[in-house]
Each structure stands twice: as structure tokens, then as C-alpha cells.
Design a protein around this nucleic acid. Structure first.
Lengths: 103, 103
DNA sequence: AACGTTCAACGTAAATGTACGATAGATAAG
DNA sequence: CTTATCTATCGTACATTTACGTTGAACGTT
């Protein structure tokens, strides 16, 4: 995370919406979320084969989604299974719905 | 606008969600949208006085929101009145709702 | 032990984003 | 005509993002 952004002066809701929006601000990450939902979970390799970017780039996007709290990784050696963090996803949904309903 | 991003390989919906999310990925822009909604419209100066950033930075954020299509500017010399583009805003809402409902 | 698979992490180049002060243009006010 | 107000834009500095190839760690299989 770590922006070049002044955080003081905004309320928590504004920061939360911005953070989740940031996590969804790249089509690859949107696509990853969709895949994880459709399939209930994916290995990294499954995602790589569905997206037009390299494995290292996919890993980077997964890391961002993890740091945003939207997805969970569980080791299943030698693979890693990714799935949506439903609690956090529900939170994000609430933040956005609240934002959109009021605006 | 203008990413370092490969666009090929994603569908239109993914790109639309990502673009709108990008527009909302900074707390200042979230705050601006909220202000414009609450007040039905604002002059640039009104926004500057509500945010913890400089006038030039506010102008930059307004420009991004304009380019994302979310807001409209009308000249009222020597001021400029900004308001939500309700049509585009409704579109964004639909894209996100569709995205959240399916995921 | 050697090998293959899977994935994270490193290093890097180029593009973008964020923020600011300063400047410039347009208009209204005096 | 001069001045003050409002806002866009320019220039700049620094951080972040995106993408890739490469490497390395962890594990299973032979």
C-alpha cells in the first residue's frame, strides 16, 4: 500500500472506498476476482492460463489483492490455492453500496 | 487514461469496472464526488476549501474525474461549476452492482 | 540425490500518479 | 486601465505501478 498520498483530512469511509477501488483499478485484478468467484478458488497457474500476462505479473496482482485483504492464499504444496475472502468482499460491497446509494 | 496496461485479453466489462475503480482510487476523488452529490454542484474553490490539498492538485483530480466521464464542468465566469454526470454515474453504479452481485 | 513443477521474489525499465509552487488567461470590480 | 479573483496548466520532484525475465525456495516424483 503506501501511497504518495496525504491521508490526513479524509474520513475513514473515503479511504476505505479509495483502497478497495484501487484494488479493482486494473482489469487483470477484476478478472482474477471474477475467476475466483466463478470457480470458488484457483491455483495461480489456472489464473495465468486465463490472463494475457506473465506468471510473474499475475503473482504481483495476487499480492496486491492479498494486501488489500480481498483474497486468501492457502498452501497446497507445491501449489497455492487462492480464494475470495468473503468477509472482506462483503465489506467492500457494503462500502461501495453505501457510497453509490448516497451518491 | 493511458495505462502501461495490456488491454487485449480482457472483456469490456472488466475494463469498464477497472476504469471507474481507477477514477475512485484516491480519497480526494471520492471526497469530491461526495461533495458534488451533497451540494448538487460546486465551484472549484468550494472543493479546495474542503480538501487538504492545494488548488492545483484539486484541479488535477477534477480533470481525471472529467476524463473518466464522471463529472461535468460548466463555465460561470470567473468560476467553473462542477456537477456529477448523472448518466455516467448511473452507468458506473450499474457496472459495479453487476460486478458485485455476480461476485 | 537429481529432476520437474509451482509459485514468490528480485531486479529493472518505462510509464503513471501525486503533490506543489508558479504562471497565465479570463473575467469582474474598482 | 489596473487590480483582484478564479481556475487551468506547466514544470518539477519523487513515489508507485506495470510488466517482464530470471532466480530461488519448497515440495513431489523418480
Amino acid at each position: 500500500m503506501a501511497y504518495t498520498i496525504k491521508i490526513e483530512g479524509y474520513n475513514e469511509h473515503q479511504i476505505n472506498v479509495a483502497n478497495f477501488a484501487k484494488a479493482l483499478s486494473h482489469p487483470a485484478r477484476v478478472a482474477i476476482i471474477e475467476l475466483l468467484y466463478e470457480r470458488g478458488g484457483c491455483y495461480c497457474g489456472d489464473i495465468v492460463s486465463q490472463l494475457p500476462i506473465s506468471q510473474s505479473s499475475v503473482s504481483q496482482h495476487l499480492k496486491e489483492l492479498k494486501e488489500a485483504g480481498l483474497i486468501l492464499a492457502t498452501e497446497q504444496p507445491p501449489k497455492v490455492k487462492y480464494c475470495l475472502d468473503k468477509t472482506k468482499w462483503e465489506m467492500a460491497k457494503q462500502f461501495f453500496c453505501h457510497f453509490f446509494d448516497n451518491n
